[in-house]
Each structure stands twice: as structure tokens, then as C-alpha cells.
């Protein structure tokens, strides 16, 4: 899969919108805590990861949740995972 930063970003936006349709990415500061900003509880977050897996084929282990604190961190993490895949 050829994943450009744009396709990764779009996959993240689509995955979040599937769970939280009102999420406003234009207003989201990519360096602020992602889940607090978008009001995603642990169920929502798990569902977002399931959506992401369906779109990008990346299965994120629970041990890596700590690396997913901000939108910027998530995009970087996914790019690295897809690069090494």
C-alpha cells in the first residue's frame, strides 16, 4: 500500500468521524491531547482503532497506546508502521 501523509491523515479523519461524526479537525490542535480534544472515551478509542485497522491494515498493540497522544503523534506512528510494513 502506498500511504502518503495525505492518505494517512484522511484515514484518521474518516475513522474518527465514523465514531464521532461531529469531530472538527479544522479546529483541532494537532499537538494537544487527541482524545480529550475529541472527547473519545476508551470505547470510542478502541472503535477508532478498529476503523483504522480496516482502512490501513495496521493493528496497533495496546502497548503502543502511549505513543498515540496527539494527532501529530498518531500520524507519525502510522507513517512509521506503514513504512516498515
Amino acid at each position: 500500500m502506498s500511504a502518503t501523509p495525505e492518505t494517512i491523515r484522511q484515514a484518521v479523519i474518516d475513522s474518527v468521524r465514523a465514531i464521532a461524526p461531529e469531530a472538527d479537525f479544522a479546529a483541532l490542535d494537532p499537538r494537544r491531547p487527541f482524545r480529550e480534544e475529541l472527547d473519545l472515551d476508551s470505547f470510542d478509542f478502541l472503535n477508532v482503532l478498529i476503523e483504522l485497522h480496516a482502512r490501513l491494515g495496521v493493528e496497533i498493540p495496546e502497548a503502543d497506546y502511549g505513543k498515540l497522544g496527539t494527532l501529530e503523534a498518531i500520524l507519525g506512528y502510522l507513517a512509521a508502521r506503514l513504512e516498515s510494513a
Partner: peptide, 17 residues
């Protein structure tokens, strides 16, 4: 719980809740 979830795919993970 982290050990319990480690080998499980996303859809089968158990939340602390």
C-alpha cells in the same frame, strides 16, 4: 489486563471498564 490483551486482535480486546 495488558497481558491478557497482548495476543488478542483489536476486536477481542477487553477494556478496563
Amino acid at each position: 489486563l495488558e497481558e491478557f490483551n497482548a495476543p488478542r486482535p483489536l476486536a477481542q480486546r477487553v477494556l478496563f471498564a
